[in-house]
Nucleic acid binder design. Structure first.
Length: 437
RNA sequence: GGGCUCGUGGUGUAGUUCGGUCUAACACGCCUCCCUGUCACGGAGGAGAUCGCCGGUUCAAAUCCGGUCGGGCCCGCCA
């Protein structure tokens, strides 16, 4: 007999079917017993009246792998209007050990208890509520791919084992590579720029490794980044708008497809407008300083509280939970950024913020070989180092005006699902204290 | 790198302020039994913790002190 998925059971009323899955819940009421069976499609209720059949489940814990044959009966009292009667149970994998955490009820996500959640991650993901986050994550990535592919971006994969650091700034992991020192890529930055010379438009969804000693709710040491790079752009706004439109599209699609899931995990309602509103860093400093009586006008970057504040501001005044901070001061620039020709104290660089958190950086690149070399020397970078040599080679042989983004997928999922810690949006998070599971 | 916090059965917590009736309580889970419409089922009973670890103070330590290990949060930095 062919297997029927639990979500399709109600289509077989009156027929005998077979379902396979995991024992999810036992409710014994004496002569009448209910068990729930979980498979990839959800849950089905099985009514077990035969004591001999029920005996097969004595000592069997949640997670026991079962095959059940029985008759589908329509009944208003059953969770989906139908359930399985007169079942014959076959235990494929008996589970006799009590699960260390509960998986049939919502799992506590208090910060101090997240460690337990991750210690038993393989089991906690069997919880239906936990799974929703990762189904939503998968859908987000699907819609992002869909949008970019439609706009003629080529999906690429760049090496993660590198001969040197790709950028300044973030700390990198060092490792032994056949006797030579190698690093783990903290971003595909220079590779994706090189590939603009070949494909014009590229994107990559891949892990990036950050060795920073940051223990906060928004840092993990292995992150999944969406990197986009596009050539022949007219100006910075074109790049900002593409990344903004992409985000609005993916969010709207996911909120439509997963409306029930998002509601059940208490995700906030989505508020977005047609375009992501933009504020210069200077404007944000002024607005924030005025509203909060704290002077941030001398900060080179936004402080975390400003990021939260401007998001609230944009939501109230512009009906958008997405907001751009643009024109960062030159003190914070990286060597490959393009200085703003209209205001040389600033860089053509925007940060995309969502629900109080920086989720992407969206700059324009310096594509003049000579200017770039100057900027690298100013940043004390060895232009002959193998980590930069080939990047400069591509630059020398013609890269058009281009820009793109580094986009934190984990952070996006966190905020979409209304979670409080980026680790909760990651299947197996890596942080300064955790390298397994 | 800096600062602040927490550690009690399998899980989540109470108790720690002010040491003593803590012989450590509650909920969930687990075990046995009862229960014919449960769906966070209900009821009766039961097992399970030397209170992270080491040392100190004291007649007496889950509780106070020191060290150590393991978490969490914030800042810096970043996605």
């Amino acid at each position: 007999m062919n297997r029927v998925l639990t979500r399709d059971v109600s289509k077989h009323i009156g027929k005998k079917i077979k379902v396979s899955g995991w024992l999810h819940k036992k409710r014994k009421l004496g002569g009448l017993n209910f068990i729930n069976l979980r498979d990839r499609g959800g849950i089905v209720q099985v009514l077990v009246e035969d004591q001999k059949e029920m005996e097969k489940l004595r000592g069997m814990q949640i997670g026991t792998v079962l095959h059940i044959e029985g008759k589908v009966v329509k009944d208003e009292r059953a969770p989906n209007g139908a359930e399985i009667h007169e079942p014959v149970l076959q235990v494929e994998v008996p589970v006799t050990e009590e699960p260390p955490i509960e998986i049939d009820k919502p799992i506590d996500h208090k910060p101090e208890n997240l460690d337990t959640l991750f210690e038993y991650r393989g089991l906690s993901l069997r919880n239906l509520q936990e799974q929703k986050v990762f189904k939503i994550r998968a859908s987000l990535l699907r819609y992002i791919r869909e949008y970019l592919t439609k706009n003629e971006f080529v999906e690429i994969q760049t090496p993660k084992l590198l001969a040197g650091a790709t950028e300044g700034g973030a700390e990198v992991f060092k490792l032994d590579y056949f006797g030579q020192e190698a690093t783990l890529a903290q971003s595909p930055q220079l590779y994706k720029q090189m590939l603009v010379g070949a494909f014009e438009r590229v994107f990559e969804i891949a892990p990036a490794f950050r060795a920073e000693l940051s223990a906060t709710t928004r840092h993990i040491s292995e992150v999944v980044m969406l990197d986009i790079e596009m050539g022949f752009v007219k100006n910075h706004d074109e790049v900002l708008d593409l990344v903004g439109d992409l985000t609005i599209f993916a969010l709207q699609q996911v909120y439509e497809e997963h409306a029930d899931d998002l509601k059940s995990i208490n995700a906030p309602q989505l508020i977005v407008s047609d375009k992501v509103p933009k504020f210069t860093v200077e404007e944000i400093h002024e607005l924030y300083s005025k509203a909060n009586k704290i002077d941030t006008t001398n900060e080179k970057d936004l402080i975390p509280d400003e990021e939260r504040w401007i998001c609230e501001y944009a939501k109230k005044k512009h009906g958008s939970e997405l907001v751009y901070a643009i024109d960062f001061p030159i003190e914070a620039m990286k060597f490959y950024h393009k200085i703003n020709p209209d205001n040389p104290k600033t860089v053509l660089w925007g940060d995309l913020l969502f629900r109080g958190l920086e989720i992407a950086t969206v700059p324009l690149r310096e594509n003049n070989h000579e200017t770039l070399v100057k900027q690298m020397k100013k940043a004390s970078i060895d232009v002959k180092h193998p980590g930069y040599k080939y990047f400069l080679q591509a630059m020398k042989f013609g890269l058009p005006t281009h820009g793109g983004c580094g986009y934190g997928i984990d952070r996006l999922v966190e905020k979409v699902c209304g979670l409080k810690n980026v680790k909760e949006a990651t299947l197996f998070p890596r942080d300064i204290n955790r390298l397994s599971p």
